[in-house]
Design a protein around this nucleic acid. Structure first.
Lengths: 156, 156
DNA sequence: AATGATAAGTCAAAGATGGTCAAATGTGTT
DNA sequence: AACACATTTGACCATCTTTGACTTATCATT
């Protein structure tokens, strides 16, 4: 009954479970083991291991590369961050993003220094080469990525 | 687990460490010891021991020649950061940017946590909506913007 | 000078990973 | 049936690493 994706999901969850919430997989190797096409791993990762669901995924290509998956802790702070990720939507203006960063600082989830660096990373200045429309989309992506990284750091 | 390049890198770093930041290697001899082709040494040197990362590499061919690697004293932190800004150019790949961030951490100019956040801000994941070409341009802009922020903090 | 031995440098091809996207297929609802 | 949504697949792309054939520079000896 369970589809291939369900199997992949369960497998990864098990690995995370027995591995302290942190695993590295080699996409093609895993695909071979499960007997599916490699890109199906991506499908599972993008639909079932998202930041909103409390996971942080990184990868590196080329020889000796791989995909790292981290399960984030579910504490009150994490909850707050997850809400921000959901709240930030598809597009994000600089001022809205700044407010969200301020909220993070106020809740002690990020230091003032860190927040300054992150702010500058998605400032209009950094993104000046993009059309204003694109800018907001990219800013939202950056924001979410940084927040999921923050979640991952709060991992056990 | 680590690839050959990682081993070479670690080996050289260790040698530098135990040798006061200064070593001479003989390319073919080292390649033989590590069991790789000689040109792989060049690959490691050009990707992981660049001036931007605080290394100076000289070489001499012919009999009694060799390669000298020196870990540069980086002057003041502000100088180092300014150099990085200049060196980062118009476009920046993710892996190059990561190595520059590592150099910042090693020089105590940014904390590990901060660097993680900044890395994720310009990761391919965060910039995935952009064409690969644009991505590198924007990444360079973000990188410079963050570094300028860092510089500003130090000069207060 | 000329020559041969000894290093290092360059560059492009091959290999090893992962990523993206859209078409095909399946599943459930109206 | 028609539609919407989720899953499965495969062709093609991007990036990082490893390898090797060919080139260039320096030294030591004649």
């Amino acid at each position: 009954m369970a589809g291939i994706s369900d199997n992949i999901e369960r497998l990864i969850r098990d690995m995370l479970e027995t591995n302290g919430g942190h695993v590295k997989i080699v996409r093609n190797e895993l695909a071979g083991r499960i007997n599916c096409v490699p890109s199906q791993i991506n499908y599972v990762l993008t639909t079932r291991f998202t930041p909103e669901q409390g996971y942080f995924v990184e990868s590196k290509r080329g020889g000796n590369g791989g995909i790292r998956i981290t399960k984030c802790r579910t504490g009150t702070g994490s909850e707050f961050i997850r809400n921000l990720i959901e709240a930030s939507g598809e597009r994000l203006s600089e001022s809205k993003a700044e407010m969200l960063m301020t909220a993070l600082v106020k809740n002690g989830l990020i230091s003032v220094g860190e927040s300054r660096l992150v702010r500058s990373s998605f400032s209009d200045k950094a993104l000046v080469r993009l059309d204003p429309m694109d800018r907001q989309v990219i800013r939202s992506n950056i924001f979410k990525q940084v927040l999921s990284c923050l979640l991952a750091e709060r991992e056990i």
